[in-house]
């Protein structure tokens, strides 16, 4: 196990190093990309669509959800191809293959941390008061991480056999974003769609982030418990599925 811990770190560092190796701005991109996204979306939804967010400025409201959402998107995108990208390893040496998607996700943590620093600066700039509920963020993040890991295990294993996954993923992520309360508050959802809307595990997670950071209260405890249960379930399914499929990875590589 110690052996694989080292391997995990090496692979994660390799991902991080290789990513920004040939770019002039390097890690600055980890800040610039969310900032540009935030700018564009804020302008559109503040001045054109005018999403009502109460007393909270829209930019802050958005950014709190946008950062975890971008982490989900970048993790899923890089982890889906992670097994294929490491076919050289898969076909040469016996390692627990779960490490590959796991390290792909973990390498995105750097971006997440850098973006979070930016968020703190934002909250300070917009004078959002500090709430004690912020201490729950690690718990919320853990639930989100389990969800991401579970999905990544399923997608990366399936992608080895059906490359369609890579192609579908982009569209799927766009649809998923519009179905999640990233750009708008969940109280804008019409009553008839509510049930469907709350079946989405990201709804509970994003609402929990906003509640903890911006409002200092939890309005949707059941939604979050549902998300946590759902995430654990997906993780379990992912682990079993990946284990089963990984026996055949080298067959098709």
């Amino acid at each position: 196990m110690v052996l694989y811990k080292d391997l995990f770190w090496q692979l994660t560092l390799r991902e991080i190093k290789a990513r920004y190796k040939q770019s002039i701005l390097g890690y600055a991109w980890a800040i610039l990309v969310p900032l540009i996204n935030l700018l564009v979306l804020s302008v559109v939804f503040t001045y054109i669509f005018r999403v009502p967010t109460g007393s909270t400025p829209y930019a802050v409201f958005l950014f709190v959800a946008l950062i975890p959402w971008m982490f989900l998107v970048s993790s899923l995108t890089s982890a889906t191809g992670s097994v294929m990208a490491n076919s050289a390893l898969i076909t040469k040496v016996k390692i627990p293959r779960e490490i590959l998607p796991l390290s792909a996700i973990s390498s995105k943590l750097v971006d997440l941390i850098l973006a979070s620093v930016l968020l703190v600066a934002f909250l300070y700039f917009y004078q959002v008061p500090f709430h004690i509920t912020t201490v729950f963020i690690p718990v919320i993040f853990l639930v989100q991480f389990f969800l991401i890991l579970g999905i990544c295990l399923i997608l990366s294993a399936t992608n080895v056999f059906y490359r369609d996954v890579e192609n579908i993923l982009g569209v799927f992520l766009t649809i998923w974003m519009y179905m999640s309360p990233v750009l708008y508050p969940s109280n804008l959802i019409p009553e008839n769609f509510k049930l469907f809307f709350f079946l989405n595990p990201m709804t509970g997670i994003i609402n929990a982030y906003r509640d903890a950071i911006l409002y200092g209260r939890f309005t949707d405890t059941y939604g979050f418990i549902y998300s946590a249960t759902f995430s654990l379930f997906i993780l379990l399914v992912g682990i079993i599925y990946f284990k089963n499929r990984s026996r055949f990875f080298a067959d098709v590589m």
């Binding site: 390799r14 190093k17 290789a18 190796k21 040939q22 490491n86 050289a88 390893l89 076909t91 040469k92 040496v93």
Partner: peptide, 14 residues
């Protein structure tokens, strides 16, 4: 040891 064959498991960018 790992299977030694042509084009071993190297990361080209590193």
């Amino acid at each position: 040891g790992p299977l030694i064959e042509l084009g071993a498991g190297f990361h080209p960018e590193l």
